[in-house]
């Protein structure tokens, strides 16, 4: 464990909690992509199956359970409890175009040909693109509420912090996992445009809106 990893984990946790609280407090999931949250639920489910097979640490298990429970609860809020407020007409990204290529790539490039390993690899690839339905929704409506921008920023910066963690681990432990690194770089690059808008607009007190 190092500081980058810890900050990354907590910014990821922060993103999940911000989204959950936003929906809960406003009783509305307007502007939120249910499809992205659904993809994250698939990601966590496939990746954290090792909860049953492999104990790492109490911290590790507790965080995995919090990520899983809070993501499924958010999904329930979007598709059940507050479904009347769900903006489905703007949430039209075809997620099969993300799921199928991730599955094929996981079968082609993985560390080991076993069920758990392939599901883990699939989750890494899918996570790197899971934000696309949400970014697509923001580009379609041309704007995002400030709280949604904070959610997206926390979600994006976490993988960037993980990249710093991987660099740190390479120099201190001589450890590198190329699958995580490449997928993490792809994931972070997808946010670049958003990061730019976030820093130049949202942090200066303006609402995130795209030029028409």
């Amino acid at each position: 464990m190092n500081i980058f990893r810890l900050l990354g984990d907590f910014s990821h946790l922060g993103a999940i909690i911000i989204l959950l609280l936003k929906i809960w407090k406003t009783r509305s999931c307007a502007g939120v992509s249910g499809k992205s949250v659904l993809l994250y639920a698939i990601v966590f489910t496939c990746r954290y199956l090792d909860l049953f097979t492999h104990f790492v640490s109490l911290y590790n298990s507790v965080m995995k359970i919090i990520y899983l429970v809070s993501t499924y609860f958010t999904l329930f809020l979007i598709y059940r409890k507050f479904k009347a407020t769900y903006d489905r007409n703007h949430d039209t990204f075809r997620i099969e175009f993300l799921i199928l290529p991730s599955a094929v790539l996981a079968l082609l490039w993985n560390h080991e040909y076993s069920v758990l390993e392939i599901l883990w690899t699939f989750s890494i690839y899918l996570e790197s693109v899971a934000v696309l339905p949400q970014l697509f929704m923001v580009s379609k409506t041309g704007e995002a509420e400030t709280i949604t921008s904070h959610y997206l920023f926390a979600l994006g910066i976490y993988r960037f912090l993980y990249i710093l963690n991987w660099i740190y681990r390479y120099y201190t432990e001589n450890f590198i996992d190329w699958i995580s690194v490449v997928a993490g770089v792809v994931q972070t690059v997808l946010y670049c445009d958003f990061f730019y808008l976030y820093i130049t607009k949202v942090l200066k007190g303006k609402k995130l809106s795209l030029p028409a």
Partner: peptide, 10 residues
């Protein structure tokens, strides 16, 4: 370089 993934990351 060690590449064996111990999966302690989230």
């Amino acid at each position: 370089v060690i590449t064996k993934n111990e999966k302690d990351e989230l």
